[in-house]
């Protein structure tokens, strides 16, 4: 049974203008699936649908054998209990320091004991290399640091599936690696991940599978080798060629 299964899913921001159409996707447990494709192809939108921020117009999504009902609060809550997302713009809560950003959802929303959440948060921040920044506020941190806090915050939710939405594209080039390193550590731990990224070297290195998207559709899926070395779809070939040249 796939961990995450999406069948014939379409979504739009405005009625009639499909941003995603007929998406079929299966992600196995422990798999790291990367979504690549030109900007505007619907990659980020797909992640927003998966985490329940944008209800699809049609189609099915099944997580761990349970179908998701996007119009039912309980079902959405259950979905978001399993998935966590890291946003391109970090989206850290500006009014909270690093520690509180990481602990707020586990303590206030999941109502877990503060002491154990804090201990976990300390470990997570250590893991992303920010053990000394507990009391800093987002506006005192660099983009790379903020994004690592965002990763720790997502992990504190103990998700089964982690969604990464272009986590490095808002960063200055010299900060990209510190964030990618944090993701590499997670990749080694066998968590199911769906990654949207423009860092092709990174995609090739960590992904178990790659899906190429264009104009709201998935045009091709395959192993990184298949996609990058032997792309079959014309659009994938163009895209990969452009990336390699660029």
């Amino acid at each position: 049974m796939p961990h995450l299964e999406i069948a014939d899913l379409s979504a739009s921001y405005e009625k009639g203008v499909d941003v995603l159409s007929g998406i079929d996707l299966q992600v196995e447990r422990g798999e790291i699936l990367s979504l690549i494709g030109p900007s505007g192809s619907g990659k980020s939108t797909l992640l927003r649908v998966i985490v329940g921020l944008l209800p699809p117009d049609s189609g099915r999504m099944v997580v761990d054998g349970t179908p998701v009902n996007f119009h039912d609060k309980r079902s959405l809550r259950d979905l978001r209990g399993r998935c966590a997302i890291v946003f391109q713009q970090y989206n850290l809560f500006q009014n909270m320091n690093v520690m509180r950003n990481v602990t707020i959802a586990p303590t206030k929303i999941k109502k877990r004991a503060a002491a154990s959440v804090r201990a976990e948060a300390e470990a997570l921040l250590e893991k992303v290399g920010l053990g000394d920044k507990h009391d800093a506020y987002p506006d005192e941190l660099s983009g790379g640091q903020q994004q690592r806090v965002a990763i720790a915050r997502a992990l504190a939710l103990k998700p089964e599936i982690l969604l990464l939405d272009e986590v490095t594209s808002a960063l200055d080039p010299e900060l990209v690696n510190e964030v990618l390193d944090a993701v590499r550590v997670l990749a080694g731990e066998g968590m199911t991940m769906v990654v949207v990224s423009h860092e092709m070297g990174f995609v090739r290195e960590v992904s178990t599978r790659v899906a190429m998207m264009d104009e709201g559709r998935i045009v091709e899926t395959g192993t990184p080798e298949e996609i990058f070395d032997r792309p079959s779809a014309g659009r994938t070939r163009d895209f990969v060629a452009k990336i390699l040249r660029g």
């Binding site: 921020l53 966590a84 997302i85 989206n91 809560f93 009014n95 206030k108 929303i109």
Partner: peptide, 21 residues
């Protein structure tokens, strides 16, 4: 907008989003 998004994705209800974020 991204503050609302983050809260929603982390399962904050409307009251919790307003109160904490």
């Amino acid at each position: 907008r991204n503050q609302w998004d983050a809260a929603e994705a982390m399962n904050f209800g409307r009251v919790a989003t307003l109160r904490y974020v």
